[in-house]
Design a protein around this nucleic acid. Structure first.
Lengths: 263, 263
DNA sequence: CAGCGGGCATTGTCCAGTCAATGCGAATGG
DNA sequence: CCATTCGCATTGACTGGACAATGCCCGCTG
């Protein structure tokens, strides 16, 4: 037969075989994969080669390696992330984040770290808030946890001059909600623009959110506006893909009538 | 002094250094990175090690390797992906997809491949459409291109019994839009539920969309309902993260009870 | 001048090893 | 019986090679 062209590289076959077994349920979430040594034998390859195959799966987010224990099929526990909920009528006692989770009905314990500081605008915030020149911004940085594990990052930017001396600046949970604080300051938020970017995380996000390799994130940027279409607040959420489903609901503007507006 | 613990592995330093240079603009998009040989010299490491560093950046989607040419900083050209637009009033002459692009105002040429087939429901579609037993589904599979490059995948599922013999089944562009076809069949779609999952692509998605390594995708699942909250259609969009921004707009449901309009 | 073909730089795949780090569990000592 | 230590299996980091594949460029040929 001589040199039958085997085309697909060995490490690919390792990855493909394992991926198929994970997909069809042969290897359920949480189960341990063969060790590198076992794979070496099975594929008659060196450790380097089988490691390459495993690395591919790690980068696809399908498996994780726990250092001296082995490789395991990844388990995911997505929670529902519902940007619109923020605009719904709500019990004003509950913080929005807590309320979101309450919807789930499971007993997971949310908590958050809040940190308020003053920063110079970046290009991100600068043109979304249509800032004049180097006006300063107040930023409320929140990292939110469930059962002690970080779940997402939520940084809100507003013009410092607007919220100076207000409750907005206090690094604690604001019971009535920061949106209410802004409304009380004469800037009720009635419109929002959501932008969602899907990408791999930056190194600092990896550490802040304890992300495993192969975990993409959604960068969810919300710009909120007043009646008069004045942008007031930019919120940047970093939402790990392995822990969230983003959910929106929509209704048609016009039930089949042409032109006619019937809200 | 003596043996200062150098802690971070060499390949990490390679990745970190290059990442920083990309971030601060020293290495602009499209520019060529040092060759592996050059990096070997700079870091006094073997090729394996510098390759590990480069591989990390590839998996982050920051760089691409063009086989015998070298590694290059990745260029991205995101287009706006606006799920809601589908529900807006529109010139019925234009296909939705074409219209989306028209908004951009740039001269990129859209095209699409349409394929209609009949399938058994998967768990995905089965419970979203609340199907009775093994009712068959019609699926319109579309792959959409811009300037010949694949941009996203769009598969729509409806009950076969509903659309049999209708225009829905013809694998060509339906001028008035498939939503209109469904409306004409007595199922006007007025509500939609959007779910967005962020993950790494499956191998078949990689090939269908010609995805580079390190490119995550959004799986955007839309379930559309009639007045009576009957689910009619499930659409699964696969949206590559490097080529899209997903955009939503929201208005507050109740402007504190009076003040009717906000456009 | 157009077309072809071969050299070549560069990345892709793979081999055969070494030593380090780490968490678990068994052996050990009080 | 409990706490501590230590062996060990397993993955992580890295060395130093080899040969294959592939676009590009340049020189040759008609």
């Amino acid at each position: 037969m001589s040199r039958m062209r085997t085309n697909t590289p060995i490490y690919q076959r390792v990855a493909d075989d394992l991926r198929a077994e994970i997909a069809d349920g042969t290897r359920p979430p949480g189960s341990q994969l063969p060790t590198e040594a076992e794979l070496q034998e099975k594929y008659a390859a060196t450790r380097y080669t089988v490691r390459q195959g495993l690395a591919a799966l790690v980068n696809e987010g399908l498996i994780v390696s726990r250092r001296p224990l082995g490789h395991f099929v990844r388990e995911i526990h997505p929670m529902v992330y519902r940007p619109q909920q923020e605009f719904r009528k709500k019990q004003p006692e509950l913080d929005i984040f807590t309320q979101l989770l309450a919807d789930e009905g499971n007993g997971r314990q949310p908590s958050q770290e809040i940190e308020v500081s003053i920063v110079q605008p970046t290009s991100n915030t600068l043109d979304r808030l249509k800032l004049a020149d180097n006006e300063l911004l107040a930023v409320r940085r929140r990292t939110r946890y469930i059962d002690g594990e970080p779940y997402n990052i939520n940084d809100s930017y507003v013009r410092l001059s607007l919220v100076q001396d207000s409750e907005y600046m206090s690094p604690v949970d604001v019971a009535r909600g920061t949106n209410q604080v802004l409304a009380d300051l004469g800037k009720p938020l009635v419109r929002a623009l959501d932008e969602i970017y899907v990408r791999m995380p930056k190194p600092d996000e990896v550490t802040r959110l304890k992300l495993g390799p192969g975990t993409p994130v959604a960068e969810h940027v919300v710009t909120t506006y007043t009646f008069e279409d004045e942008p007031v607040q930019v919120t940047i959420n970093i939402v790990p893909g392995d822990r969230h489903v983003i959910v929106f609901e929509r209704t048609r503007e016009w039930p089949p009538a042409e032109q006619g507006e019937s809200a």
